[in-house]
Design a protein around this nucleic acid. Structure first.
Lengths: 143, 143
DNA sequence: TTGAAATTGATAACCTATTTCAATTAGCTG
DNA sequence: CAGCTAATTGAAATAGGTTATCAATTTCAA
């Protein structure tokens, strides 16, 4: 049973173009990475070190950066750590964040996304992903 | 000529409530901070060390975090550094970021902001600030 | 199978941000 | 306005996440 066929093909294509190699580690990390909507390097490391105790943290970082270049992942700096988002995960959502109590509400809005495309087009950009965070006070914290 | 009256009052109010003190350094840093739409601690440090060579970087960080707690600033992790946004600055702009060459285009879009308000209202939130980043390829990097 | 080039793992280095701590300062109290 | 206590500061040490280094290993085209 072969999983993540499409992403694996994308990765191989990216590697081929740049004379990079398809290694056991890259396959292992890709497989584990794609199981999550987003994950940190450290989390992936702990998870994978069970399967392969010799896998180094540096390799995880290098590989995640590779995924970003290949368009499979998207780095997002959040707090002191970096979250690597799984781009192939379709259910993209944005966040409403209460600065008082930390409550987070996820939402999705097609109209906003359409306007984003317009802005991008006007500036000659093609959007791959985006990040929208609204900071404010939730109903309970407004006083 | 007194500048930044409103923000200074806000800060003093915040300090008063928590038995914190209004110091020369805090005034200095507030003044310099408010001149920018957003700035990093390091930049602020270099700028201020001309006026006061003894001002420490740690104090800049401490004070910027204080501003965040007081609602005057908003921290935004960007790349490897933290940008501190000046909340009182109305002309808020969003970013189009090229993931290939790093080019950044700033933009503003009232329609998007209006839709954001709608989403927030629907969820009982009152927005203070937001952050919108569109990642993709600029015209030159599309091939 | 062979060999050049890429990759890996381990660790050191890096960079930003925070913590520590003795000396200084703010700002009440009398 | 002097005295006192708690907060603040500067300098340097420390922390924590990420990247660079390098010898050994692995990939993959010829």
């Amino acid at each position: 049973m072969l999983k993540h066929q499409k992403e694996m093909a994308l990765l191989k294509e990216h590697l081929g173009k740049r004379q990079l190699k398809y290694t056991r580690q890259r396959e292992l990390i890709l497989d584990a990475f794609l199981k999550h909507e987003h994950i940190t390097a450290e989390e992936l490391y702990h998870q994978l070190s069970r399967k392969d105790p010799h896998l180094g943290l540096a390799t995880i970082y290098r590989t995640l950066n590779l995924f970003c270049e290949a368009g499979l992942a998207q780095a997002r700096h959040f707090g002191s750590q970096t979250q690597y988002d799984n781009v192939s995960h379709k259910g993209h959502h944005d966040h409403l964040i209460c600065t008082e109590c930390g409550k987070i509400v996820e939402f999705e809005n097609c109209d906003i996304e359409r306007l984003q495309e317009e802005v991008a087009a006007r500036n000659g950009f093609v959007i791959k992903t985006h990040r929208l965070e609204l900071y404010g006070l939730c109903s309970r914290c407004q006083h």
